[in-house]
Design a protein around this nucleic acid. Structure first.
Lengths: 197, 197, 197, 197
DNA sequence: AATGAATGAGGATTCATTCAT
DNA sequence: GATGAATGAATCCTCATTCAT
C-alpha cells in the first residue's frame, strides 16, 4: 500500500523563484483594493490575506508599510510617465490618463498633496514628494505656450484641485466630478482612460 | 477583579464642576491642534494630554472619537454660518471666511469630501455630510444670478477643489495656494480672515 | 499613528507552528486554574501570563472571552459524555465522574445554571445552555425506570443542587459536600473520579 | 420685576438630614435591582444613577462596593431573622420566607456559598460568612428532633442546594424550581412569601 | 522562498474613588 | 449633605513585525 500525503500534511507549494514576482504583483494589487476599501491605514495583514500569501512574504518584498503604499503609487506614476512619453502624446491626453488614475486609485488621490504634515505613515510622504515631481515633469513637457495654466506650478495646483474634487465620493461619482472640475478650470481633457487602454 | 487604584498617594487638583466647560473647550482646541499635526486618526490620549486633562474627561464630554472630530468641525461650520448671516455679507466675504477655516483647520479640510467611503472613523462621515450641507446652504444664499459658479453644485465642487489645493502644504503655504486656486477658478474672494476678525 | 514596537532589542523565542497546539492546551489549562482562583471574570491577561504566552496568542486561539470559557467547559462535558458512552457505564458511575468535574472545575460549577440572566459575559451563557443539554442527554440514557429522580428534569435539577452545594467551599471541602448533597437527595453515586481515572 | 432662579440655575434640593436616610434606602433598593439585572459586578455608577443621587452620596453611605452588597444582603437576613423570631414561627414557615428571598434577590443567592474563594469583590465574602451564620442560627432554633435534616450542617447544606437550584433561571422560574428542590429533599416548606407579607 | 504563529507595545475604553463647589 | 466632574489605573483588543519551521 503506497502512501501519499494527505491534504493536511502537504506543505504549501513552493513554486520557486517564479512565484516571487507573482507574489509581489499580487500584493500590490491586493494593496490597491484594500486601500480603496479601507483607506491607507488598513492592516497589512489584510493585504497579505487578500493576496493569498503569508505575512512573511509581504515583509520579504516590502520592508515596511510605507514601501507597500509607495509601490502602489509607483505604478500609477509610471503609467502617467508612459502616457507622456508616447509619440502621440499631448497635454489633454496625458491629463486624461492622469485623471483616470485619480478616479481609479484611492491611494493615488492625495499623492499630489505631498507636503502634507500629518496622518500618513512615515516614509510615504517622503517618497510621495518625489513621485509628485515625476508627474510634474511629465506634464510640463507638454505644456504649450499660452496655455491657460501657463506656469508649471499652476498646472500642479490644478491637479491637486481635481484631486480634491474626487476625494470622498464613491468610485462611480469620481469621473463625473473630475470632468466637472476640469471644466471649471477651463482645461481641455482627453478621454479618461488608462494608458494604452 | 475590578480596579484597585493602588494610589493612596496624592491626587491632582479637582477644580470642581466649574472646570467642565473649560475642559471641553480645551479638548476641542487640543483636538484641532493634534488633528493638524497628526491627522484625524491621532490617538485620543494625545488630545487629552495636550488639553491637560485625564482620559476620562475626554470620554465624559465625547462618547467616541467621532464626537470629538464633529465638535471641531461644528465650530468651523458655525463661523461660516455666522459670516453668511451677517447683514453685510456677500459671497466673496463668506468665501473669505470659509477659506480662512480651510487654511487654519486641518480637520475642516476634507469636510466637503463627505461621501468618502473608507478610512475615516465611523460617525465622522455621517455627521460630516450634514455639516457639508449647512455650508452649502450658507453659500447658496449669496449666489447671485449670472455668477460664474451658477449652480450650487458647482460652488461646492469649487470649495472641494480649493480644499484639495490646500491639503498637504504646511500652514504657511496654505493661504497662498488657496488664493491661487480661487484665481484659477476665476472666483473673487474677500479677505481671508475669521468671522469678525 | 499606528504602532512602533520600540523594541529593537531581543525577542523571546518563537517555537514556530509546532507550538500552536501546545499553546492552546496551555491556555485552556491556565484558564481553568485562573477561573478557579479568581472567577469567570478574571482578566484574560492573567490567563495568558499563566500560560506563558503573549496576549496575542490568546486572541489568536479564542476570539473573545466567551470562547475561552467555552473551551474549558467543553472539556468537562466531553469527559462526562465519554463516561456515559463507556460500555460499562451506569448512572452512579457517570454521576461520579460528573461530580468529580464539579469538585475540580470552578468553571464547570454553574454550567447547569444556564438560563442566568445577568453578570456573565455574553456568549458564555448561550453556549452553556447547549453544553447543559449535552450533559442532560448523557445522564438520561442511564436513568432506569423507577429511579428516585424519575424525570430527566428532576435529574438535572439535582445536578444543579449539588452544584450549589459545592459552590464556594475550598477545593478540599467540595468532595465531602458533594457526597453529602447526593446523600440528602437519596441518590447513589459511584466513586468520584475522572473518566478513566 | 422680581427675579426667580431658572431651572438651570437652581441647585439640586438639599433636603437636609432627612434626605440621608431616604437616600440610603434608595441606594439599597437600586442596588438590589441593578444586581438582579447585571450581576454583582455591575458598575456602582449605575446604582447611584438609578437611586437618583450623585456618586458621592453612595460613597458617603458605603465606603466601598463590598459595603453596598453587604447592605443588600443584610436586609434579606434580617427578614429571615424576624420570621424566625415571630411567636408563631416554625421551620416550614421560616424556610418559606427564606425561599422567597432566594427567589427574589439575586444577591442573596449564593450568600450561603460563603467560603467561596474567587470572583467576588473583597469584603463581600468576609461579611457573607457572618450573615450565613446568622441564617443558620435562625433556622437551627426551629429544627425539631427527628427532622429529616437532623444536623444543622445538613440544613445549611440543603439551603445551599436550593440556592443552586434557583441560580440562573429567570425570576419567574425560580419559585417553581425552589419548591421542586425542597420536594426532592423531602422537606416541607411553608408558603413562599416575605415576612409579614 | 513561504507560512503563519508568537510577541508585545499602543491605543481605546471603563469605572472606582476623590473632591471642589 | 449633595453633586457630578476629574483622575488614572486596569483591562481589552489590535496589529506591526519577527522568526522557527
Amino acid at each position: 500500500m503506497t502512501q501519499h500525503p494527505t491534504a493536511e500534511e502537504r506543505r504549501p507549494a513552493n513554486d520557486g523563484p517564479k512565484a516571487a514576482a507573482r507574489n509581489r504583483a499580487a500584493l500590490v494589487a491586493a494593496a490597491r483594493e484594500v486601500y480603496a476599501e479601507h483607506g491607507l491605514d488598513a492592516p497589512l495583514s489584510g493585504i497579505a490575506r487578500r493576496a493569498g500569501v503569508g505575512q512573511g512574504v509581504l515583509y520579504r518584498h516590502f520592508p515596511d508599510r510605507a514601501a507597500v503604499a509607495n509601490a502602489v503609487l509607483e505604478e500609477n506614476v509610471r503609467e502617467v510617465e508612459q502616457a507622456a512619453a508616447a509619440a502621440t502624446a499631448n497635454l489633454a491626453g496625458v491629463l486624461g490618463v492622469l485623471t483616470w488614475h485619480l478616479t481609479e486609485s484611492a491611494a493615488f488621490i492625495g499623492l499630489l498633496h505631498a507636503d502634507r504634515t500629518g496622518g500618513r505613515p512615515d516614509g510615504v510622504h517622503a517618497h510621495a514628494s518625489a513621485l509628485s515631481d515625476r508627474v510634474a515633469r511629465s506634464l510640463r513637457g507638454h505644456l504649450t505656450d499660452g496655455h491657460r495654466l501657463g506656469a508649471s506650478d499652476d498646472l500642479m495646483l490644478a491637479v491637486a484641485m481635481v484631486s480634491g474634487a474626487v476625494t470622498g465620493p464613491t468610485r462611480g461619482e469620481r469621473e463625473r466630478r473630475a470632468l466637472a472640475a476640469w471644466r471649471l478650470l477651463g482645461v481641455e481633457v482627453g478621454p479618461v482612460r488608462p494608458f494604452g487602454g
